[in-house]
Amino acid sequence: MKARGLRAYAIGYLIFLYAPIVLLPIFAFNDSRIIAFPLSGFTTNWFTEMWADRQLWQALRNSLVISGSTAVIATVLGVFGARASTRYSFPGKGGLVGLIMLPLVLPEMIVAMSLLVVLLAISVPLSIFTVILGHVLITTPFAVAILSSAFQSLDKSLEEAAYDLGEGPVSTFRLIILPLVAPGIISSLLICFTISLDEFIIAYFLAGADTVLSSYIYGQFRFPAKVPAMLALGTILVLVSVILLSIAEFFRRRGIAKTGGKDTGGFL
């Protein structure tokens, strides 16, 4: 009885979560510039209009450069941070790790404004480069968190075995550790990429004259006539992020299976 009530509540909750997103394709294919009921007819015009929008493509290119660079840099920094914090103990560890993870508990506006103040003070021109600086800062904690759990599930005896067999620290890392945490690295890349792509505040304030996808969408919302094309874009973005997430989930599960499998294999 209680379980059934909870199940009904859970389904209601999922409807609440998905209701706005369901509206995206409905109005993206609706033949009216006004987003309201009743629906007037089916059209793919908004997708065509969006596809022909040159500024949008430029914003997308900028966003992809930012998200790609951010994902790589944050994941590399994440590998250093996670490896150091899971494998070694050293003085000041708590403080340093705390500082690295701090952006998780700071409102993004404060991160954006403090970076902006410094960049303006030392007159660094704002561009997609400065957005990358900000995005690396806020995605590194996610990379560290994901990679820490990957490094933690490593069996230390594998590493010791490599040392016993005459490998040095660098080759051990490359030959033993890296392949085992590879799934963690891939999911860190994907998560950082997705966060960076979706991020708005830093991209809006630190990009200067450059537009990125999120700030472009934000600008277009001011013009009611442009809204349907943005809903079409939103529909595509939802599809893309669902696909990316499914891939990330696949690699995460394979990673668990991989380390788990190796562990028992070693004992056998």
Binding site: G81, Y88, F90, L99, P103, S114, L115, G134, L137
Partner: peptide
């Protein structure tokens, strides 16, 4: 301790320069 500090230094330096300083 030294290896740990060396290993964490790129990430920590980044956070010091772009977070603590601002």
């Amino acid at each position: 301790a030294r290896s740990g500090l060396m290993l964490i230094s790129p990430t920590a330096l980044y956070a010091v320069l772009l977070l603590a300083a601002p």
